[in-house]
């Protein structure tokens, strides 16, 4: 089937929007990895909690998920602080640090998903704003997706600029390169890593608010997305923002075009193969350092 120009355009837009949600998740993971060197397996669960926060605020008080993203961010920031103090800090300097934090955050994910399930059951929920799609020429774009994508891109750029341009960013990079040397120039690495874990978790909260209007809100909603985000971070290179951007968009495109041209059955294949090919050529991801 040869698609028309409009269909291709529609596909590209869709891929871009989906990709930007992935980018936001990947950036959230990278913010943590950059300084702490831990992959947060619970990121998907954090996103899920953010979505629940948005859902309840919408359901009970009628607050739009875009406005309540701030509350989601604050709530998740608190959980992030807890995660850093209790589940990451005690392991600093251990031989299997990365492996241990991965297993611990996996435990955290199980814990959070099942507490959610216990409190609010598996009932499907969702926020339907009922807004009609935006139409540009022959293509129509889902507004929740459009807003979500735009906020995701803005937030990613904002964070990138903060890390590149501000004093905090410089300090974070210093810690990321060497905790010891950072300490010598008067930076407290613990403060930095706490700040970054909190920021990463807050970003997960915002992501959750954004996707509460796109996907069904369930305790398991973050699991697939979380693993996808980890794949993207690996594809782009751990700790690299440019990598997260390229990786997220690549996966967005691989999924949309794979589904359209190869069929839904092969949808996951294309993006898995992308990752495997990239890694067998460059074992540290697109933009990762050795």
């Amino acid at each position: 089937m040869i698609p028309s120009a409009d269909t291709i355009l529609q596909l590209i837009v869709q891929a871009l929007l989906l990709g930007s949600i992935y980018v936001l998740m990947a950036v959230g993971l990278n913010v943590i990895y950059g300084v702490v060197k831990a992959i947060n397996w619970a990121h998907g669960a954090f996103v899920m909690l953010g979505a629940y926060a948005a859902y309840w605020l919408y359901e009970l008080y009628g607050i739009s998920p875009y406005a309540s993203a701030v509350f989601s961010a604050i709530a998740l920031a608190a959980i992030g602080a807890f995660t850093h103090e209790l589940l990451m800090k005690p392991f600093f300097g251990m031989r299997y640090f990365r492996a241990i934090t991965l297993v611990v955050t996996y435990g955290l994910a199980i814990l959070l998903i099942n507490i959610t399930r216990y409190m609010w059951t598996d009932v499907l929920r969702g926020v339907n704003l009922g807004v009609p799609p935006a139409t540009i020429g022959a293509i129509s774009i889902s507004r929740p997706f459009l807003y979500g994508g735009l906020v995701a891109i803005a937030l990613s750029i904002l964070f990138y600029l903060m890390l590149k341009r501000t004093q905090i960013g410089r300090a974070a990079r210093a810690v990321s390169e060497s905790r010891k040397h950072a300490m010598l120039v008067g930076i407290n690495p613990n403060v930095m890593s706490r700040f970054m874990v909190i920021s990463g978790a807050a970003m997960a909260g915002v992501t959750g608010s954004l996707i509460s209007t796109i996907f069904a809100v369930t305790p398991e909603m973050g699991s697939v997305l979380g693993i996808k985000a980890i794949t993207i971070v690996i594809l782009g290179g751990l700790g690299s923002y440019a990598g997260a951007l390229i990786g997220g968009l690549m996966i967005g495109f691989a999924e949309a075009s794979g589904t359209y041209f190869l069929g839904a059955r092969y949808q996951p294949l294309l993006y898995f193969l992308t990752l495997l090919i990239v890694l067998s050529i460059k074992p540290t991801g697109i933009a990762g350092e050795e």
């Binding site: 996808k228 999924e255 589904t259 839904a264 996951p268």
Partner: peptide, 8 residues
């Protein structure tokens, strides 16, 4: 595990 159905 498919999350996005728009292309389909």
């Amino acid at each position: 595990g498919v999350t996005d159905f728009s292309a389909i």
